[in-house]
Design a protein around this nucleic acid. Structure first.
Length: 922
DNA sequence: GTCTAGAGCGCC
DNA sequence: AAAGGGCGCTCTAGAC
């Protein structure tokens, strides 16, 4: 009875405090524990290539849609919170004083089993009590007793850990510096017992720590700190990254990381996205992994347990199921018991999952690609030629998982001043380009003045009115009405207020009744004529060309001359002459608008958002192992797709900078032709290996092998493959890359395309050449490299037989659908079969290199730390006085990623630079 | 108002 | 009939 009164009192003040703070609560549930929307998109795209069973597809879609791991933002009215608080005895008390009072009244002895067993409830239908197998910690004394057990009697157990967090918008915010830890749970198997005595014959094997309704929150956290930071106590997590940062926010640096069940599940089978993904719910409910135990964890997602119909404005119940904020669930009389059950079930699921995955990985052999690298790359193998996937995990992905969270925690500094500056410039440029296009277009289509230039649909209407859909043979309407925001504040006759949206009418640029004369060069997947950048660029011609000619009043041009001046096809399509020039200039402006829009909304603006930053101005993106090939991906924000140097017209990369004020600088190092080198190694291609051994410009050498006339020119001494003269000294004869630029460019594109399984048709389309010519060029490439052809064919055969392929280090990618009767699916997976060993192998090398860098004692002592990885590139930050040494060490690590050696049959070339910003370091 | 599909585009 | 691998993100338009 006493306990009940106390709890009510405590709950009273916490809610009271909450009510003061805010009216709305943002919350998350099960962060990152599901397929992201883009993962879904990608999958769907692949499946759609030829999925005929629409019905099955849409059913699965609906299944996914009903999954709960999404973000809910709810309104919690202050009144409601106050009302709840009023149930407690001290709703009006000052929270701090009350806290002390409660502390004083708390029992000095550990809670008895009876205390923990569940409470008597005053209400009519009793809410579900807390589960009997859970020991709840809500004061320092209990915490101390539990931690004593954790670090003595149960020290050698493997602990699963899980947190619950409120006040975080997990969709946009990094957990570094965000979110409020409201509880956490620990579980180390069914044998442990943390209760006092045995309640109802049940062991209390699960620990649940309440950080809301507790005495001395900070005190409890402090007591658990040594346990969480004990290197020797093994801890496993589901998505360690999130929980580690949340604990980090509490001043706890988690140690003893022993496994992330998300990564382990990925390693075991990277193709689960089609079978429910990698959420804890999905994995732990999978009987293939957990056997009979899976039924214990089936359907334990939050929305099903705690979801309620939303309340509409008129007070009635809506259709939408929403989730109350997690702190409310934890504290609510009705939900508390169920909530504790949910939390502890999660941690139990993680533990079971770990056990299962460890076993499964252990029994899966890890077979490298024939190089006897075993002794070199593993200190566990001891003479065996192969090892198992658990050893792979323990040697590579476990430390890598830890390394990734280090990087996330460190973050990268973003120069806000610079971003603000370029945002201004970019916005101004965009406004001008937009005005230019609108001006021109509205001469032909009056309402184009108000159109949304960013709308592909509206653009299609202007450019392609009357054109046919390739798939359905429907026509683009001649005239169509669109809704656009009423930005001018136009008020209709007889109305008082301006409408939010107004209707505009768009028809083709050639007139109301004139169908578009433009050839449809590009179609969207649904068959409509598409207006993407290459297509628009084709209309406009070279950037700035049309405007220049207009300025020179040079508009009496034949079509040939126009082409010679770099004008695009809009010149002829709009009748040539001045009109043709103006059309090209307008299309040029249109390209500009789109390009600038992308830069602004994808990069410049988000990088200045609060959600992704910490107070120190560093950006903490999350680095994920969630790809089919084993590459990393980056999220919130994605720092792996920042504009590359050549296209970075506003120098966005200059915003990524070292902490110069603290005497730091950057080292940026990237591999040269990593994937091609790996292709050479894995295929054993003599010609490629030879080319890499000789060094020099690889693509020029490829061109040399493909074209006799280049070989002849070199033989006659008319040109050189490369020039290693002194700086500033010109070569005596031109280089291949200058004299045969076109051939070299083709060779370069081929070098990359072949690894992706590009088809002759694709090449013909890209290069606008005949199919025959494309085939001819491909054959030229393969002529010198027959081993590559053979190897690719072998991979496809292997993939069909085993339904999987392997990377350099023996990681497996399943290709379950490769025998599909659907040729779209089959062909796609066949290309994946030849690409995965290469891309995945490159990812393996990059992983090893990063581990090598992190292990390097000297780098660590000098204070150098990894910040980012972009597939074949890494960035580090450290004291500028040791930058030269760091450069050397990083290069050495990357060139010798197998514990300081390189057993591959090809050398790894690394280009490393140091500078204060990412822009300068290239 | 919320949610999703579709299209497009940035990187390696 | 389509026709290059791997990602994440933003915007629009339309459905609910």
């Amino acid at each position: 009875m006493l306990a009940f009164a106390l709890r009510s009192a405590k709950r009273g003040w916490t809610l009271h405090r909450q009510a003061q703070g805010r009216g709305s609560v943002r919350l998350f549930s099960a962060p990152f524990k599901s397929a992201t929307s883009s993962e879904k998109q990608r999958l769907d795209a692949i499946r759609k290539q030829g999925e005929s069973k629409r019905r099955a597809y849409s059913l699965e879609q609906r299944e996914r849609q009903s999954r709960p791991e999404v973000q809910y933002i709810l309104q919690v009215s202050d009144d409601a919170a106050q009302g709840e608080a009023g149930k407690g005895s001290a709703g009006e008390e000052d929270p701090k004083q009350l806290s002390k009072a409660v502390q004083a009244a708390a029992p000095a002895e550990p809670a008895t089993a009876g205390d923990q067993g569940g409470e008597e409830k005053a209400s009519g239908s009793p809410p579900e009590p807390a589960p009997a197998d859970v020991y709840t910690v809500d004061n320092v004394t209990q915490a101390q007793r539990v931690v004593a057990l954790l670090s003595t009697r149960y020290k050698d157990k493997v602990y699963a850990c899980d947190t619950e967090v409120a006040d975080i918008d997990v969709k946009t915010a990094s957990p570094v510096g965000h979110g409020k830890l409201i509880s956490f749970a620990l579980y180390c198997g069914p044998d442990a017992h943390f209760g006092v005595g045995v309640a109802n014959g049940s062991r209390q094997s699960k620990i649940w720590v309440d950080l809301l309704d507790c005495d001395d929150r900070e005190g409890i956290v402090e007591v658990f700190k040594p346990f969480m930071e004990d290197v020797d106590i093994k801890k496993v997590w589901h998505n360690y990254s999130f929980d580690r940062h949340i604990f980090g926010n509490e001043g706890i640096q988690c140690k003893g990381f022993f496994g992330d069940t998300m990564h382990m599940a990925r390693l075991y089978d990277s193709s689960r996205l089609t079978k429910g993904g990698y959420s804890l719910e999905s994995l732990s409910g999978d009987s293939k992994l957990l056997g009979e135990k899976a039924s214990l964890f089936k359907k334990t997602n939050m929305k099903e347990i705690f979801g309620k119909p939303n309340i509409k404005k008129d007070g009635t119940e809506g259709k939408l199921v929403v989730l109350p904020p997690v702190d409310e669930l934890q504290q609510g009389e009705e939900t508390r018991g169920k909530w504790i059950k949910y939390c502890t079930l999660d941690v139990e699921a993680t533990w079971q999952l770990y056990q299962a995955l460890e076993g499964n990985l252990y029994e899966t052999e890890c077979i490298g690609d024939g190089v006897d690298m075993a002794q070199t790359y593993s200190n566990l193998v001891q003479g065996r030629r192969s090892f198992n996937m658990y050893e792979f995990y323990a040697n590579f992905w476990r430390p890598f998982g830890s390394l990734l969270t280090d990087m996330e925690h460190k973050g990268v500094l973003a120069d806000q001043n610079h971003l603000a500056k370029i945002e201004k410039v970019a916005t101004q440029d965009q406004v001008e380009a937009q005005a230019f296009f609108r001006e021109w277009a509205s001469e032909r289509v009056p309402d184009a003045k108000l159109m949304n230039i960013g709308s592909a649909l509206q653009l299609r209407q202007l450019l392609f009115a009357g054109a046919l859909n390739q798939k359905t043979s429907e026509a683009v309407e001649m005239v169509r009405v669109f809704k656009v925001p009423n930005e001018t504040g136009f008020i209709e006759e007889g109305k008082k207020k301006p409408k939010k949206n107004i209707d505009i009418e768009l028809h083709g640029l050639w007139g109301r009744d004139v169908p578009s004369p433009l050839p449809v060069e590009h179609t969207t997947p649904s068959g409509w004529p598409g207006a993407n950048t290459p297509m628009l660029r084709g209309l406009a011609g070279n950037q700035g060309a049309a405007k220049r000619l207009l300025g020179e009043e040079n508009w009496d041009l034949t079509e040939e001359e126009a082409k010679g001046h770099g004008l695009g096809t809009a010149f002829a399509a709009f009748g040539g002459g001045r009109e043709g020039l103006r059309a090209c200039a307008a299309m040029d402006a249109l390209c500009d608008v789109a390009a600038i829009d992308t830069l602004l909304s994808n990069f410049i603006i988000p990088l200045q958002g609060d959600a992704i930053k910490c107070s120190e101005g560093r950006i903490h993106c999350s680095m994920n192992i969630n790809t089919e090939t084993g590459r990393l991906s980056a999220r919130r924000p994605n720092l792996q797709n920042q504009p590359a140097l050549e296209k970075d017209r506003y120098k966005i990369r200059q915003a990524f900078t070292a902490d110069v004020a603290a005497g730091k600088t950057l080292v940026v190092a990237d591999y040269g032709q990593l994937e091609l080198r790996l292709l050479a190694h894995m295929t054993g291609c003599v010609s490629m290996l030879d080319a890499f051994e000789r060094g020099g410009d690889f693509h020029s050498r490829t061109a040399l092998g493909m074209y006799e006339h280049i070989q002849e020119a070199v033989d006659k001494g008319e040109c050189l493959l490369e020039w290693k003269g002194e700086a500033g000294e010109d070569p005596p004869v031109p280089l291949i890359k200058d004299m045969f630029a076109a051939e070299r460019r083709k060779a370069k594109v081929l070098n990359f395309s072949i690894a992706y399984g590009k088809t002759p048709h694709g090449l013909a389309k890209d290069w606008k050449v005949s199919l025959r010519e494309a085939e001819e060029t491909l054959n030229r490439w393969y002529r010198d490299r027959p081993e590559v052809k053979t190897w690719q064919e072998e991979r496809i055969v292997e993939a069909h037989q085993l339904k999987s392929v392997r990377t350099l280090l023996g990681r497996q990618r399943h290709l379950h659908q490769i025998n599909s009767r659907n040729s779209g699916v089959r062909k796609h997976l066949e290309r994946a079969a030849i690409n995965t060993p290469i891309q995945g192998g490159a990812a393996d090398i990059a992983t090893l290199a990063m581990l090598e860098i992190q292990r390097n004692q000297e780098l660590r002592e000098l204070g150098w730390t990894l910040l980012l990885q972009v597939h074949d590139e890494v960035m580090l930050e450290g004291p500028s006085e040791t930058k030269e040494r760091a450069l050397e060490l990083v290069r050495r690590c990357m060139e010798n990623p197998f514990h300081g050696t390189n057993p591959l049959s090809v050398s790894l070339s690394v280009d490393a630079k140091t500078a204060d910003t990412w822009y300068e370091a290239k």
